[in-house]
Design a protein around this nucleic acid. Structure first.
Lengths: 164, 164
DNA sequence: GGCAGATATCTCGATCATCGAGTGAATGCA
DNA sequence: TGCATTCACTCGATGATCGAGATATCTGCC
């Protein structure tokens, strides 16, 4: 809406395109996860676990819950689910006997690929028509949009029972 | 992963960027809706209602449920919620007394803007650094990616109690 | 005109993810 | 040693969703 008067159309259309893509991606991921018996929170949790595990970080239930904006109760239930269907495991800390480390299993990594690979392939097929320069531009725009959204809300501090 | 050998990096990075954006957008929208007491399904429903209403289409509970992949039971509950918090209203059809048309209220449109406008503004601020040509490119890439995901799964026909 | 089947919406009981509050054990500080 | 804090978990409740079916209305056919 509000613009200085130069090129309103492109910016508006771009934001619209971003919105539409987010919508469709969300729906598609949800559906794909659903087919594999994984709910959206479980998918998010596994994504986080994989990223952190790949980065050499270990993840406590508290960490996971905070990153997903879940209460400790929900986090326990979430980890229970993941453990029950073989996608994660609990490893007690040796130094602090209250602490538990959550790590994803190989099955989880495999199932994750099984869910995301078809989507990635479909996109790759369609997107390979663009030139590297165009891709580069799109990457930069996406990064900027992501950053804008990411810095949009600062999670703020959280007491033991976190969200809301 | 699989590529012919020319420029693996850009395409891969692009898909990665799309994935990351989807993730952050999802989380942000979810959080924003949560703050306004609207759950993701309600938000989706309102989005659909606004689009269709703007296009001059009217929407039955069956339509809405099908587009959201909900059962008729869930759809009734959804519409009940929307009506209860003043975001939608039921209008019985004059020609077929079994039929009901769902339409969003002005409050809903207002609340929708209240939720999405800050995000859009934040993105607009950040994205206005790009040239119209770059935006154009990004729009095309996003459209292609959206299309790839959208045609990814054909919903297929659905009996009275739809999903799963 | 009237009845059988189709269609649209809603109701009922159950399941499951999440929440708020609180418990018990382990830790660290005074 | 004593006490507040931290961490993971348990319990009861809430609410979105589901599957199955009830109810009302419409349509086609005799």
């Amino acid at each position: 809406m509000s613009h200085s008067g130069q090129e309103p159309s492109e910016l508006f259309q771009l934001i619209q395109a971003l919105r539409r893509y987010a919508e469709v991606a969300d729906r598609t991921i949800d559906a794909a996860g659903h087919r594999s018996g994984l709910h959206r929170t479980d998918l998010r949790a596994l994504t986080i676990l994989m990223q952190r595990q790949a980065a050499g970080l270990n993840t406590s239930p508290t960490d996971l819950g905070r990153m997903l904006s879940l209460t400790s109760a929900s986090t326990t239930a979430l980890v229970d689910r993941l453990v029950a269907n073989g996608h994660a495991q609990r490893t007690p800390s040796t130094t602090d006997r209250r602490r538990v480390s959550i790590s994803h299993t190989d099955t989880a990594a495999l199932d994750g690929r099984k869910i995301f690979m078809p989507m990635a392939r479909s996109m790759a097929d369609r997107l390979s028509e663009f030139t590297p320069e165009q891709m580069e531009t799109a990457i930069e725009v996406l990064a900027a949009a992501t950053e804008a959204l990411d810095t949009f809300e600062t999670p703020g501090p959280s007491p033991t029972n976190a969200p809301s």
